[in-house]
Amino acid sequence: MIGLLLGLPLLLDLVLIWGPALASIGLSFTSWDGLGEIRPVGLDNYVNIVSNYPPFWPAVWHNLLWLAFLGLVATPFGLFLAVLLDREMRFTRFYQTAFYLPVVLSLAVVGFLAQLIFSRDYGAANALLGRTDNPVDWLGDPSINLWSVLLLVGWRHVGYVMLLYLAGLKAVDPGLKEAAAIDGANEPQTFFRVVFPTLRPVNVIVLVITVIEALRAFDIVYAINRGRNGLELLSVLVTDNIVGEASRIGYGSAIAVILLLISTGFIATYLVQVFRREEDQA
């Protein structure tokens, strides 16, 4: 029975996750249009991607920026809001709902909202800023459109992180704070030295979610402009090449493998740290 309970998920994992992943790695060394024969081409796809595919490096950069923005701006801000809302101020429920609301929207819907707000000619942003004569091209100007998008992504991410931390904060034993106060710690000290460390399980979840959100980012840019012109992301390049008539399956697989390597990098770093800490504690 235990064998079945363990074996079934393992089998599904192998078939649904490792199978396709290994197939992608295999295909990434080939040229295949989905029609003819699969021709091995060695490292050609990789060489081409890094040296002869203009959208590639911008896509890598955008994914990293995405991660940095979520990790360094949106996540701390979410924590900040959670701390504020945890203080039982007036209208807490209202604020919680307001901040959490965007999380309910799918990113594709957020992408659609982006058009309404940021359209150069008809958008609300330019109207509110009074920039109708010399409008800002929020979504079309490749030097700023990523920031417009990150703003919306952050808007959504903040609510998510806030909710997770809020739950975590509610679970913190008030006695800890009292003890710290009696020991003469001021509020920042109490928070950073006492409360925050107890939030470690939540921190782990938030970190993982942030990394996942940054690396799998796709739908919002796809809804806005198919992820081109300043909004390139690795996930979009994979889709562009594999799905559709383009059918550069080997090439797209190679990009997918690069994305896999980047993800693995983060996962490995994280696991190493967790194990090291556990060893320290042991």
């Binding site: 359209s119 150069r120 000619d121 008809y122 409008p135 091209d137 929020w138 979504l139 079309g140 100007d141 490749p142 459109n145 402009n225 012109n229």
Partner: peptide
């Protein structure tokens, strides 16, 4: 700003 505009607009 053509890259930010749809043909419908």
């Amino acid at each position: 700003g053509a890259n930010g505009r749809t043909w419908q607009e």
